[in-house]
């Protein structure tokens, strides 16, 4: 019996190795005029933003467009770096990276450079020397945050008591969006942070955080959530406690990313502001690969929507 199991196991191993071999052969034997790209992204299920981003990548980097694309997904920096090393071994032509964390990438980017692989960063910047990558196509998170904070300041409240719900600490979206708000709070005496806490992009955690503030009895009139999911969780807690929110109500709700459902909340007047974070970088990358990079950092065009002025056309066009 044991012997049989061993044979089966050995057979399975051999089969899997043969399969792997096939996959490699298929990769090597493909038409050489295709551009090989290795795309390292965050988990597409992480958020609506990521789903839209991944869909955009898959629609652009197709064989019809002259690409042979491989994808790797992880929310963890070390796993992403391992995937990058694998793509370097596979001798891709381009490495497209949306990094989970900003640090730790120098080594692997140097390997890529030594192997003659061009690196293009999208969506997230990293702390590495500019010479290590071709270009980076990014959203300016700090500008997104600044836009939202400027909008908030323009509302002219006598006092701003803010519940600040942060994303995963250390991500560039968190750093950028937090920075703008914190600068404002430090500079103005009538801006206070009632609570500043990370919910790690998670709606449930955001709900618990806001619930906790409500239970504590602290007064607040602004919820600044660094993405739509967390804003939704926060609003759920407000609804439970009968605190009104939205245009002309007690609490101002601010979210980011412009999910379609979030923009609909804006249209209905339940939320007040949503900052766009443009997920469609693929066309920019396609352009750089085919025509060369003209500048190191390409900052994409982004909008901020005010519930008072948003229209159905905006929802249809910018909702993701």
């Amino acid at each position: 019996m044991k012997k049989f199991a061993k044979i089966v196991l050995a057979g399975a191993l051999a089969a899997s190795m043969a399969l792997a071999g096939c996959a490699c052969a298929a990769g090597g034997g493909a038409k050489s005029d295709l551009i090989k790209v290795g795309i390292i992204n965050n988990d597409p299920n992480e958020s609506g933003y990521r789903t839209a981003n991944d869909r955009d990548m898959k629609n652009t980097f197709t064989e019809a467009n002259g690409y042979q694309a491989s994808f790797a997904y992880s929310l963890k920096n070390d796993e992403q770096i391992a995937a990058a090393q694998k793509f370097i071994q596979d001798e891709v032509d381009y490495l497209l990276i949306s990094a989970a964390g900003t640090s730790g990438w120098d080594g692997v980017l140097q390997q890529a450079q030594a192997a003659g692989i061009k690196v293009i960063l999208f969506d997230r910047t990293i702390d590495a020397d500019e010479s290590l990558y071709e270009a980076s196509i990014v959203s300016d998170m700090a500008a997104e945050g600044q836009k939202a904070v400027d909008w908030l300041a323009s509302q002219g409240l006598s006092e701003y008591n803010v519940i600040h719900i942060q994303g995963v600490m250390g991500s560039s979206a968190q750093i950028g969006r937090t920075g703008a708000l914190n600068d404002m709070v430090n500079a103005n005496a009538n801006w206070n942070l009632v609570e500043e806490q990370t919910a790690e992009w998670n709606a449930e955690t955001a709900q618990q955080i806001v619930q906790s503030v409500i239970d504590r009895g602290d007064k607040f009139n602004v919820i600044y959530a660094e993405n739509d999911d967390m804003a939704k969780g926060a609003v759920q807690a407000l609804d439970k406690a009968n605190i009104s929110h939205g245009v002309g109500k007690d609490v101002i709700v601010i979210g980011f990313d412009c999910n379609k459902w979030a923009l609909e909340e804006l249209l209905a007047g339940n939320w007040n502001y949503d900052g766009q974070c443009n997920p469609f970088q693929a066309s920019y990358i396609d352009n750089i690969i085919k025509n060369g990079a003209t500048q190191k950092v390409v900052i994409m065009d982004e909008k901020g929507f005010d519930a008072a002025t948003i229209t159905q056309a905006d929802v249809d066009q910018y909702g993701i």
Binding site: N45, E46, W201, N202, Q207, D229, Q236, W261
Partner: peptide, 11 residues
């Protein structure tokens, strides 16, 4: 039911 939606990676 709590949120009437789901987020696969964090629920």
């Amino acid at each position: 039911s709590r949120l009437s939606t789901i987020n696969y990676s964090v629920v």
